[in-house]
Amino acid sequence: MIEKKIINKCRKGDQRAFRELYNATVPYIFSIVKRYVFAESDWKDVVQDAFAQIFTKINVYDENKGDFKPFIRKITVNICLMHIRKNKKTPLLTSMSDFEEPASIDLDQMRFQNLNRTDIENILKDMPDGYRAIFLLHVIDEFTYEEISEMLEITKETVRSQMFRAKKWIMKKSIIQYKKSSYGLF
């Protein structure tokens, strides 16, 4: 938990407070950045952008409306999305026709529980950008469909359908991964 006093000092532009806030929150910020941005060379730049935004927008943070953590999470996620858009130069959404829809999959069949974090990270790395962004926003960072639709400037229905497809895509990939593992391919 970040102390109110530190936040207040940050609002006044106290750079010692910036340092304290940075040291306290950088692991969290970095974990978000790492989820959205896979290029290691971009991490530092995105983290800097995120903190610049946090320090700049800290004046509008209202303690009465919620914790500080969701506030910085939202800023960081937005920065990450901007970064992805800027670098891809293409719409963040994934066209439904770009990928073959996976067949209906039974969760019990896929042995999903056996996958560890690294497996999941590998799966996400291969995921189309549009799917991944919406999946991370909703499942990991717990933004509602409405919030995601505002952030990505798309309709709520689009978010919902992309989310559905993202999950199916992951399940399909998980099964492939599981089967390869079972046959000792890796």
Partner: peptide, 26 residues
Amino acid sequence: KMKDAFEAYDEQIPEGMSWDEMAPGI
């Protein structure tokens, strides 16, 4: 499951991300 995989993970900060190194850029 997906959320747990990320939340329980203690992210290590890579070298070069200390405040002294990042502050000028920020």
